[in-house]
Write a protein that binds this DNA or RNA. Structure first.
Length: 850
RNA sequence: GGGCGAUUAGCUCAGGGGGAGAGCGCUUCCUUGACGCGGAAGAGGUCAGUGGUUCGAAUCCACUAUCGCCCACCA
């Protein structure tokens, strides 16, 4: 403890928990519809219940909290609504792995009911973790309103939405190729398939002619086709060649036999075939390839599905039935080889789809699924994005999203998983299907499938506010103000919220979308648990404090992804320390009386500077320019307020300085509070503020505080001071000096900070002449410094000469004078003028010495 | 195969038509009424390359190189 009675250093560990509890106790984050206020609402992108806070959450949390706290301080009725997502496939995978590890059982061993129960319990245990972590970050969410996608009310919203879309004919059942994960035994969406380059093989498969005429293209008795998945030949229904491929014209219409299963298939002509790939002959497997499905359809061919749900070969696979797909691949290749039907085998690098959640290789698989007709839903969303009804930061993502929506495919929303919202369709005894929340009656069986987790997430901005009930919350807070998110879920989630919001509310779900950077690992690659390069925000918070981490993240966040650097947390921590020490200074500073007293130019300058900072900072936050905003505020607080005004307060105060000092500092804390809530709150408390800072008003720009005269005066004064300091450092001059400044400066500030006593006409053996902007400082020197001054003057002269030359050349250019904006031209003239006079002065001084 | 973005000081990154910026690191000095997680003064950059537009380009355009990311049903 210092003599001030407050700790010498700020200890975030001792402060943050206490302050968060205080905010909660005082209901500082509670928001309820208030007709006398304007609403401001952000819904938290619901983290997965299974998740732990990662750097992306920390960054997005900092962004949302900053915007919410700012809105709250600006007088809005600001709601930041928290929630968690049940994370269907992700959580199911976690619970399955646990079950296998701990009990050696699969989900089928325990049965659906029991398994879902376990998922429910696991989710309940897990969800408190990430919520606690949000508190550590300082998130000012209204905890009374915590939502969960498996809450009864939310489930009701999901079922309502499904039934409405179903009844409108926008949800239908269809037999199509889907991305099938044999491990999860479920369909997954296109967006959940990761394509990875793998080293595979291209196998030459030979199909003997049925008629045995032996008149293949080159006299052979077979047709060769290249495939990366030989086992799928068991499901072939045709071969196709390009109709324009002259090599194969007489092949069309002939028949070949599929080895092993001995099925005869015909050779067709189809435009789809690329003659330049492989042999120019393509095998058609409609049940296991989306293109083949189309081709098969064009030729009226019945698909043959050879895979079970778990990826093993089914009865259609003849001798290979029961094998896994990998076993079947080897066995088919070996069998072909034995029969002399294996052609060339080439190494082949290609992209193979993997399940986003479990990493299993995806099989395109024909199955009966539920689909959402997206074209109809996308049209209004495209319109809303085109018209600017939704603003996206940065705008390039608005255009990207429109492009994606324009090429949208129907959405497969059914999953053959167990953890999730069960599809509310019931099949009756007579084969009828009814969409209903409850069983329509005796003998009805509910569809076993559940919904894609993103179907429920798509309703998030309004289902969390009470929909389908027409609640007061919904009327007041919807549409929400802003959604902040990582770009990786723009299509998966954001685009769907827009479509669902327009469909069910007739209004966009949010006015603005902020697409934030992705936080990469220190080496610039993506953070991933498997690579072991993740950074845990909680560890950072523990070490640096939540405020430092938040400031560091925002300081570094722009539209570009960035490699996380601990330096930024360091920067944040140094900043907190700097502010803490400023707090101690302000507290200890003589602070008497409240009555207005006469201000000095320095007082008016700092007010003016602060006021401009308020205006620019607020505008930057409004545009989600967080990095710029942080740099601006940091620069003001450190380089203007602390470096200059505090020094002025020490050395050349006015009667009003105590008041202005405190006022501006408190205002700075208010500006910073949305970003660094804990430390600023503590500083305000230490300063004796009676009201919590979280409840203060955000500073407002006031035109009357602009003071150009004071700005110019202090600018010149600071330059003069710096010129003297620079001279002292270079010439190694210590102690007080005498001198004079030509050009108007604040003499008391100059004298005190430069250590120069001003005299009418500086007299002495030698004089130093220092350019300081448009002013000149002259200092009385001792004789021994004379030689050094000559050298210094020569350097200055050549520097100023270059400046003069540059401006002169520019102004000599007739085209420049004619075409450049008047302000630029007059600016150059002024510079030329100032520098010319400066040059004359310097040369005159040099002459005096020589 | 398409699309988007990046390349700026030793490092991590801002900026973005009119005299190159920050933090860290580096050099010199400094316990001056808060702060050494500090203060003062410095060194350090043909803003990837080539062409173009312009009175003027690090900034806009084109191409090239390198590196990322997203999207796509080529066996």
């Amino acid at each position: 403890m210092s003599q001030l009675g407050i700790p010498k250093t700020y200890d975030h560990r001792a402060v943050e928990g206490r302050i968060y509890a205080e905010w909660e106790r005082r209901g500082a984050f509670d928001a309820d519809p208030n007709p006398r206020k304007e609403p401001y609402c952000i819904v938290l992108p619901p983290p997965n219940v299974t998740g732990a806070l990662h750097m992306g959450h920390a960054l997005n949390g900092a962004i949302q909290d900053t915007l919410t706290r700012r809105a709250r301080m600006k007088g809005y009725d600001a709601l930041w609504l928290p929630g968690v997502d049940h994370a269907s496939i992700a959580l199911q995978n976690v619970v399955e792995r646990k079950l296998l590890r701990e009990e050696g059982k699969s989900r089928w061993d325990v049965g659906r009911e029991e398994f879902v129960e376990r998922c429910r319990h696991f989710a309940e245990d897990a969800r408190s973790q990430i919520l606690g972590q949000l508190k550590r970050l300082g998130a000012s969410v209204d905890w009374r309103r915590l939502r969960y996608t498996m809450d009864d009310d939310y489930v009701d919203a999901v079922l309502t939405a499904f039934i409405e879309l179903y009844e409108a004919g926008l949800i239908y059942r269809g037999n199509r190729i889907v991305n099938w994960c044999p491990h999860d035994r479920s369909a997954i969406s296109d967006l959940e398939v990761n394509y990875e380059e793998v080293n595979g093989r291209l196998y030459g498969l030979r199909y003997p002619f049925v008629d045995g005429r032996g008149a293949g293209p080159d006299g052979r008795a077979y047709v060769q086709v290249f495939s990366t998945r030989p086992e799928t030949m068991l499901g072939d229904v045709a071969l196709v060649v390009n109709p324009d491929d002259e090599r194969y014209t007489d092949l069309v219409g002939r028949r070949v036999v599929i080895p092993f299963v001995e099925r005869e298939i015909e050779i067709f002509a189809d435009e789809y075939v690329d003659p330049s790939f492989g042999t120019g002959v393509l095998k058609v497997t409609p049940a296991h390839d989306p293109n083949d499905f189309e081709i098969g359809g064009r030729h009226g061919l019945e698909p043959v599905n050879v895979l079970e749900r778990d990826g093993t070969i089914n009865a259609h696979g003849g001798p290979f039935a029961g094998m896994t797909r990998e076993e079947a691949r080897r066995a088919v290749v070996q069998g072909l080889d034995e029969r002399g039907l294996l052609g060339e085998v080439e190494d082949y690098r290609h992209r193979v789809g993997h399940c986003d959640r479990c990493g299993t290789i995806i099989e395109p698989w024909l199955s009966e699924q539920w689909w959402v007709d997206m074209k109809v839903l996308a049209a209004p969303a495209i319109e809303a994005l085109n018209s600017g009804e939704i603003t996206v930061y940065p705008d390039s993502w608005r255009r990207e999203t429109i492009r994606w929506l324009e090429g949208i495919h129907d959405w497969n929303v059914s999953r053959q998983l167990w953890w999730g919202h069960r599809i509310p369709v019931w099949y009756g005894p007579d084969g009828d299907a009814v969409a209903s929340k409850e069983s329509p009656g005796e003998g009805y069986e509910q569809d076993p499938d559940i919904l894609d987790t993103w179907f429920s997430s798509g309703l998030w901005p309004f289902a969390t506010l009470g929909w389908p009930k027409e609640t007061e919350d919904l009327a007041y807070f919807y549409p929400t103000s802003l959604l902040s998110t990582a770009r990786e879920i723009m299509y998966l989630w954001v685009a769907r919220m827009i479509m669902m919001g327009l469909r069910f509310r007739g209004e966009v779900p949010f006015e603005k979308v902020n697409v934030h950077s992705i936080v990469l690992a220190e080496d610039g690659t993506k953070m991933s648990k498997s690579k072991g390069n993740t950074i845990d925000p909680l560890v950072l918070i523990e070490e640096y404090g939540a405020d430092a981490v938040r400031f560091g993240l925002l300081y570094q966040s722009s539209t570009q992804d960035f490699a996380y650097s601990y330096e930024r947390a360091d920067l944040g921590r140094s900043f907190v320390t700097k502010l803490w020490n400023a707090t101690r200074f302000v507290l200890a500073y003589d602070n008497e009386g409240e009555e207005p007293r006469e201000t000095s130019p320095a007082d008016r300058w700092i007010l003016s500077e602060f006021n401009r900072t308020v205006r620019d900072y607020d505008a930057l936050l409004e545009e989600c320019e967080f990095s710029e905003a942080m740099r601006l505020l940091y620069g003001f607080a450190w380089n203007q307020f602390a470096d200059w005004y505090i020094e002025i307060a020490k050395a050349a105060p006015s009667p009003a300085t105590p008041r202005i000092l405190r006022e501006v500092f408190l205002g700075t804390l208010e500006l910073l509070h949305p970003v660094m809530p804990f430390a600023t709150e503590e500083m305000a408390r230490v300063l004796g503020e009676r009201e919590l800072l979280v409840r203060h008003s955000f500073p407002r720009y006031e035109a009357s505080l602009e003071d150009e005269g004071a700005d110019r005066l202090l600018d010149r004064t600071k330059r003069a001071v710096s010129a003297v300091r620079s001279f002292r450092a270079e010439s190694k001059v210590e102690g007080d000096l005498e001198g004079r400044v030509s050009g108007e400066v604040d003499l008391s500030v100059f004298g005190a900070l430069a250590g120069v006593k001003t005299v009418e006409s500086p007299d002495g053996a030698a004089k130093a002449t220092l350019p300081a902007g448009d002013a000149v400082v002259e200092l009385v020197l001792s004789e021994e410094l004379r030689r050094g001054e000559i050298e210094r003057l020569r350097k200055e002269i050549s520097r100023v000469e270059r400046e003069v030359e540059r401006a002169r050349a520019k102004l000599a250019n007739e085209k420049f004078v004619a075409k450049a904006p008047a302000a630029i031209v007059s600016g150059e003239r002024e510079k030329l003028d100032v520098n010319t006079r400066m040059l004359e002065t310097l040369i005159r001084r040099l002459d005096e010495y020589l």
